[in-house]
Design a protein around this nucleic acid. Sequence first.
DNA 1: CTGAAAGCGCTTACAG
DNA 2: CTGAAAGCGCTTACAG
Lengths: 333, 333
Amino acid sequence: MATIGDVAREAGVSRSTVSYALSGKRSISRETRDRIDEAIQRLGFTVNAGARALATSETMVLGLFLQFHDDEFPPAMLQYILAVSTAAREKGYDILMVTDADGPGAVKRITSSNMVDGVVLLDVTHDDPRLDALRAARQPGALVGLPRDTQDVDVFDLDFGEAARMLVDHLYGLGHRKIILISPPRHVFDRGGAYGWRFRDAAVERAARYGIQIYPYYGESQQPGISRSLNAILDARPDATGLIVHNDASIAVLPALLHERGVQVPRDLSVVSLYSRDFGRSFLLPYTAVETSPDKLGREAVQHLVRRINDPDYSPTVAKFIEPELTIRGSTA
Amino acid sequence: MATIGDVAREAGVSRSTVSYALSGKRSISRETRDRIDEAIQRLGFTVNAGARALATSETMVLGLFLQFHDDEFPPAMLQYILAVSTAAREKGYDILMVTDADGPGAVKRITSSNMVDGVVLLDVTHDDPRLDALRAARQPGALVGLPRDTQDVDVFDLDFGEAARMLVDHLYGLGHRKIILISPPRHVFDRGGAYGWRFRDAAVERAARYGIQIYPYYGESQQPGISRSLNAILDARPDATGLIVHNDASIAVLPALLHERGVQVPRDLSVVSLYSRDFGRSFLLPYTAVETSPDKLGREAVQHLVRRINDPDYSPTVAKFIEPELTIRGSTA
DNA sequence: CTGAAAGCGCTTACAG
DNA sequence: CTGAAAGCGCTTACAG
């Protein structure tokens, strides 16, 4: 392992000069720089990240904390992981991915040992126990998902309320007066997944305002429950002409299920949903839907986090809700 | 930030004594230890991981390198990530997850800057360009997936050849003489995903030995191609009585597709496959299948890697093939 | 434009 | 059983 001292000796300069040549933080004569560059090449030198981190108090690593729930739909989770990782690299950060079952403990362990410069919390719930650990940390954090108490944290999430209103408006505008809503599974609500009720409550309220019927149900997360419950719901509401699906696992099976029931979209039923473009593509979902934009969300969270790492008080904390965008795919009439 | 020096002062001892109290590497008197513990509590001290890493040359971090291909089935990928992460934590390591598009560059960047003690490469292909970078690194690595050249690397993978033979034997033993085989998509083969042909070639060879017919096809990775190609294949081989599916995306849609075709399993068709128990559960797959055991694979890779980190020559490099286990689920007759 | 020195927060021989 | 000191590989005021 060549060190900066080896390079200095090889180039016949001091270690500080090599360091400054590396960082560009002061001007170096042409010849000196050339000699240093050559020495670096010859020795195959790379800065030791740990030593640099110790000297600068910057690790250039972000902690990405996530938890796997059985009712989580893996493709969606992976999209967020990739989005955060990609955005981080663009800003020069690497990702320490932490999947410990003990969420708060992991946050404390990683932050207090100074392994990261900042923290991204995925899948934040209403009363997320990781938040106290995050608030106690000296590193800033960005949350994906909305907690009850947003004090002292930066929050990023889709505007689920607005998304619900958009979809209800869309169906209402087309003349639908009886609409089924499939929400995430009940245990998502139980565990505090606020996106569930934020969407549902907004949809119900909007429908009430229009004086139209909306029938909210919980979906399931695993087969055969998914199909069984969807069939039961459709059987129970034959009069509904519109269907809003806010449930990844359900929407993924819906095309096959409707086909099997002989239901034609949009002739027999108008269907709208909520998913990312990638998700829709890989499951070939033909429905008019609000984009969930995991890449945009991940990128915004990381960019904001990086700004706050570099300047802790560059702004008051934010709760940023990504504006939903409706993509029309002709599944409504 | 309390440092070890603060703790030492607070406890009235030297820094080395605090360090030894932390590591337990020499005996400390009862009272001294108590005073140190109290001081640590009072100050909320945690060892700075970077400083420790610099002093010990051990980061206690493993690099996990993965690449997202469009034809990858996300649930399977996530299972490997989780398995590696969990196994690493059990051994006291954290995970630096690297998803750079430039695989070899990322391996070089992370290893040469000494950010990790070891490397896990996921989804290794036949001529994986990351291998040269790994061999040039001073850290040991463990591969998941089989490359052409296994020199100087530890390889972990399912024994796909044996899995194929097991499944052919199983069908042959039940009297099947015409068998369809659905392999991974063609671009998996193109990109060097050896598991594709290792399985297929072994199956074909075994069938030839028995003098029975096997019809190998590529599957697709995205809808509607998946269903369309499956239907075309089944239409083309009405005489086949057995079906082997070595393709995650295809097996996930198979139950619905067969149902739609009015095919009863195993009455009309015997079906066997290859997937993990978790995978089968979340998609409710009722097929007799070989377990792919991502958790076992991830755990073995990590355990071996950790051993090699601690003793680079504790054994020659290994290519370890997890023995396939057949789980009978009654989808054959 | 460049160097000598201190310091980041630890660990670990060396000494007693 | 404990301490003083050197060293891990960098960065960055301070000085010239």
